[in-house]
């Protein structure tokens, strides 16, 4: 069932469009991540959804009711959309339990203890916010937002202020809690890993529009264009031409993943982990750089015409100077010049 529907949503700061006609459907019980680099309009999107800022065009529907258009606006407090801000923004004068209970009936202790249990904050129920760690504060903020069983919950870069180790753990916790509570959630983030690991679907935002919306695997392995491909992770971009249904490149003939038409020229994007380096004394490509990470290693390889980056299993990575044959695993995405593809 459709929960949230954005139709041509637009928002301007002066003459500059920040949200430039966004379309998106979010379904009941779904956790969707909006991924984009900073300044791309993610926070503005959250603020318009929450009702903190008005919109300049298009419509927002919640449960098929219009909640915002250019002329009509449901007040923030009437929307039933709650928010977990970037800085937890707990009420400094209230305890953890009181913070969680803020949006619900004061006597509803059952719901509060349910959320304390869900977020594993039982021990801290009577603490003041200033005596909590960053991760604990975010968990309280999450519980507070979930407490009234909102129609939807918005998370604005909720992990960005935390250190990496804590971030990973909290990410899993947040997904678990949101799913356990059956909430529909929209999270914005600039962190690719975070978006791919936490969300049911990812919407990649660029210049005020969604460049691609899809499930994480689809987004990662079949990016809609070269821009999305490089934004989601390291990619080696090389030129190619279609002949007999194959992409002819300096790395040999590759199989295109998408539909291609004969004779077009364009680029392919290959992830470093999709290269396979086979040690071969007779090969004409050589390893010229090697960065060791433990679980894997990033190798720089000079082929007769190209310099590429390839990922290889850590302990077994070829040494510098070793001649190798470069293979490309599986099919590749081909992007014809002059065409922008959107799914």
């Amino acid at each position: 069932m459709k929960k949230l529907e954005l139709r041509n949503l637009s928002k301007y700061y002066g003459d500059k469009p920040v949200l430039d006609g966004l379309n998106l459907d979010v379904y009941e019980g779904e956790l969707i991540a909006v991924l984009g680099s900073s300044g791309v309009g993610k926070s503005t999107l959250i603020r318009t959804l929450a009702g903190f800022e008005s919109i300049d065009g298009g419509e927002i529907y919640l449960d098929e009711n219009l909640i915002a258009s250019k002329d009509r606006e449901v007040l923030a407090e009437k929307r039933g959309i709650t928010i977990v801000p970037q800085a937890a923004s707990l009420f400094p004068h209230l305890t953890v339990s009181q913070n969680i209970a803020f949006g619900i009936d004061k006597n509803n202790t059952e719901r509060v203890s349910e959320l304390l249990r869900l977020t594993q904050l039982e021990q801290l129920a009577d603490r003041m916010p200033e005596n909590l760690s960053g991760g604990q504060q975010q968990r309280v903020a999450l519980a507070r937002a979930l407490a009234p069983k909102p129609k939807m919950i918005l998370l604005d870069e909720p992990f960005s202020a935390l250190d990496p180790e804590l971030r990973d753990q909290l990410r899993n916790d947040v997904r678990r809690v949101i799913k356990a509570d059956g909430a529909t959630a929209l999270l914005v983030t600039h962190d690719q890993e975070e978006a791919l690991s936490i969300a049911d679907r990812v919407a990649v935002m660029r210049d005020g529009v969604f460049a691609q919306v899809g499930d994480p695997i689809e987004i990662y392995s079949a990016p809609a264009d070269v821009g999305v491909a490089t934004f989601l992770g390291d990619s080696v971009i090389i030129r190619g031409e279609i002949k007999d249904g194959k992409v002819i490149t300096d790395l040999g003939k590759l199989n295109p993943l998408n539909n291609v038409s004969e004779g077009t020229v364009g680029r392919v994007a290959i992830r470093p982990e999709n290269f396979y380096l086979q040690p071969n004394p007779k090969a004409d490509s050589f390893v010229i750089g090697r960065t060791f990470f433990g679980h894997d290693a990033l190798l720089e390889v000079q082929t007769p015409k190209l310099r590429i980056k390839a990922r290889s299993n850590g302990p077994f990575a070829p040494e510098i100077g070793m001649p190798v044959t470069v293979w490309v695993r599986g099919a590749v995405n081909f992007y014809a010049d002059g065409a922008t593809q959107l799914t």
């Binding site: 407090e77 801000p85 009420f91 903020a141 009234p148 909102p150 918005l154």
Partner: peptide
């Protein structure tokens, strides 16, 4: 003061 706390309160249904 953190004005975001005010916005959170509004999203939680307070006028």
């Amino acid at each position: 003061s953190n004005f975001q706390a005010e916005e959170v309160a509004r999203s939680l249904g307070k006028n």
